[in-house]
Amino acid sequence: MNIVSVENLNLTYEEKGNKNHILKDISFEVEKGEILGIVGLSGAGKTSLLRTLNLLHKPDNGKIIFEQEDITKLNEKTVIPIRKKIGVVFQHFNLFRNKNVYNNIAFPLLLEKIDKEEIKKRVEKIADEIGLTERLNAYPSQLSGGEQQRVGIARSIITNPDLILLDEPTSALDPMITKIILDLVLDISIKRGLTIITVTHDMDVVKRICDKVAYLKKGTLSFFGETHEFFASLTTKEVSEFENEFLTDFEKIKKRESDEKKFIRVVFWGANTHESVIWDTAKDMDINVNILYGKIEELKKGPFGSLILEISGKQSMNFIKNLKEKVYYLEVI
């Protein structure tokens, strides 16, 4: 069942008399329990898209169907009950500075007429789940980034929302804390059957937690589908835009280019990722195969490998043709 469907969404900003078309005709849907990653380069409209989903930005036209209701028809007042069902976690945490951790987490409950004892019970339960029990009396300024983001997550899930929006939740954190926070998000999403939409430019986040990917390019949705399909669909140039490590290697590789040599990028997915497909194919041919770059990563739904090979020899074209049939994706660079 779809929890959110976005249909032909358009968003423009008026800036100094100029109309900026931020989102162009975006359509996608998210099923209950899924984790969707919205990715793209800076300025592609990722955060704007996320902000329209709880109407922090009002789109110009198009529909956002949340649990069978088109929320774009609501105003700042009538959208309140919807917002209470959608938790939001921000890049810079956005905690209330003059409230301690307890009151930050309890804040959404304090807006309702809920018994103080009940609130206390629920805050303590969440704090225990997320590892904040020791810090309930601290103020945000006394917390580390990782702790602040835990508070942000606790605050967003205390009302048992149906959907969580994460806006670059880990980009202000170091890699170690990022891993811990992502594991926490994954753990919560599984335990509570939460649907999550996260904006990120970090491909590790996508690989680790996302079931599906929406890839924005200058305001248009250039890809929407399963995570492994997304990684396979990226051109070599796009991969180098997203992944630093790959970019450095790729630039070195390009310097080796010559007429006799061919470069190919090969992508493996699922069961055959760990098989020796390349050697089996190359075995009886008169060619040289040289691995210039290689990586196998565990996506949420299985292993995903990508290689860059340098091939020389008479049967190069044959090798490429045969190999293409055995791998998930192959591109001659």
Binding site: N54, L56, I80, N94, F96, N98, P108, L111
Partner: peptide
Amino acid sequence: LPSGIIDSARSLGTTNWQFISKVLIPETLP
């Protein structure tokens, strides 16, 4: 008051009055 805090409060579903009494004034009290 940082715009992030305002986003936070709006996202959590505060009414105008709740925003004033529970966010705007407490956050700028000092």
